[in-house]
Simulated assay, not measured.
Amino acid sequence: MLPGRRLVRVLPLLLCVLLAGCAVRPADTAERDVRRAVAAWSRTAPAQLSGIPAEDWAYEVASVRRDGVRALVRAELRYRLAGYDAAPAGSARALDLVMDGGSWRVRADRPAPGALPQLWDQGPVSVVRGEHSLVLGGSGAPDLAAIAAEADRAVPAASSAWPKPWAGRVVVLVPGSLERMAELLGGTADAYRGLGAVTTGRVGAGPAPADRVVVNPEGWAELGGAGRRIVLAHEVTHVATRAATTATTPLWLSEGFADWAAYRGGSTTPAQGAPALGRAVRRGEVPGGLPPAEAFAFGGDPDAVARAYEGAWLACRLIADRWGEAALVRLYERAGREPLPVALDGALGVDLPGLTRAWQEALREQLR
């Protein structure tokens, strides 16, 4: 065969190979169809969300793994609760899909391994709307209307203590049991036993995060009317101050400010509101310094945790009484962006040792 003629026969073969490489392969087509099925699923909210004002519901696909007529998708769910979330909430999800009649269909949508569940992953959700609140309850949750009423009282209280811009609305999640609460928060039931509620949400400046106040139904049932008011006002204040709270904000200031806002305007005296710390002071055990971050960790000695919270409240109470409520707010703002010594000097004109001595003197005087 002549060399030239051989070249003529090889070129069409090479061209076919190149064209085949540019065409969409069957595997690519299947993955594209899986992604389309997930996009269609995004437009159909789960039945458990009935009544929940979810918007911008969308899955951002991270990976697709196919095995014949089945597929596993890892994705990040993004959504907002209309009228409440200024920034989207997120949830890592695992979606199971099957080929059904020539089309891919989502068969299961669940939290990805290691990810926290959403309230609706635990079953049907009931919804109660308050004037300033949206309360979502799981099966077996306590009276949602009563919780919404308490939240509606807590929002103005937080706004009065924190006269800075914030949403002025709150989302409250009420799981059906302590164990279900622990599932939502990624902890153990013992870590939250005895608590009335906690607040979730990232800290730092920027768009207000999708905070959630999570009520412990068992702890809530043990509280009286005053206790419920204080607990929700405390947690809602965390929501109000979230954008000003950063990793540099001392825990004694963030927790103390929330308690100060909750007790503010009431008749609770230091002796009434700080029984554990009062017992220690009367034993001659005046704390050597303001409560450190580790003192607020739950799961340890409950009396020690109580002393930390009580001491933080009385520190903020002292600042508001001696330097003024506006100075306390300024300190909170500055402590989120400056070292504490700089914030104290700028907001109060005092250093940390000076504040500590004033606080210790107040403890001896008020708790003796």
Rank of each mutant, 00 (worst) to 15 (best):
A347T: 02
Q122T: 10
A71G: 04
A149Q: 14
R32M: 12
L340I: 06
L15S: 07
I319Q: 10
M1H: 10
T268M: 11
G284V: 02
G273L: 08
A47W: 06
L144Q: 05
R9C: 11
V38N: 01
R74Q: 11
V286H: 01
A58K: 13
Y332E: 10
R364Q: 12
A87I: 01
P275I: 00
G130N: 01
D109H: 04
P156T: 04
R368N: 13
R357V: 13
R107Q: 14
G349Y: 05
V34C: 04
V213I: 10
D121N: 12
S91F: 00
H234R: 10
V281L: 06
E150I: 09
D303N: 08
C16G: 14
G265E: 05
G346V: 04
A271C: 09
E183L: 15
D259Q: 15
R36N: 08
T241P: 02
W359N: 00
G256A: 03
Q366E: 15
D100S: 15
A45T: 12
P217L: 01
Q118I: 09
T188L: 14
T29V: 15
A258P: 11
G273W: 02
A189D: 02
V231C: 00
V128Y: 07
A343Y: 06
R334K: 12
V24P: 15
C316N: 12
W359F: 01
C316R: 05
A40S: 13
W162A: 03
L178A: 12
A244F: 05
L232G: 09
A158N: 01
G265L: 13
P339A: 06
Y79N: 00
R129S: 13
S267L: 14
P175K: 09
P302W: 03
L7S: 11
G101L: 03
A208L: 15
R202K: 10
V213S: 05
A145G: 10
D121I: 05
R334L: 15
R153V: 07
E31H: 10
A189F: 00
L134F: 06
V69E: 12
V172H: 00
L344E: 07
D321G: 08
L13V: 14
V170C: 03
E76G: 03
R65V: 03
H132W: 03
A343I: 03
R279Y: 07
R129M: 10
A86L: 14
R169E: 00
V61M: 03
Q48L: 06
R78Q: 08
L81K: 00
V239R: 07
W313T: 00
A146P: 05
R334H: 11
R317Y: 10
R66S: 11
A271P: 08
T269D: 07
T245R: 05
V170I: 02
L49W: 06
R80F: 02
A205L: 15
W313H: 01
P111F: 02
W359Q: 05
L134E: 06
S177V: 00
L119T: 13
A92H: 04
G299P: 02
R229N: 08
M1T: 11
L173S: 06
D351K: 08
R169P: 02
A115L: 14
A161L: 06
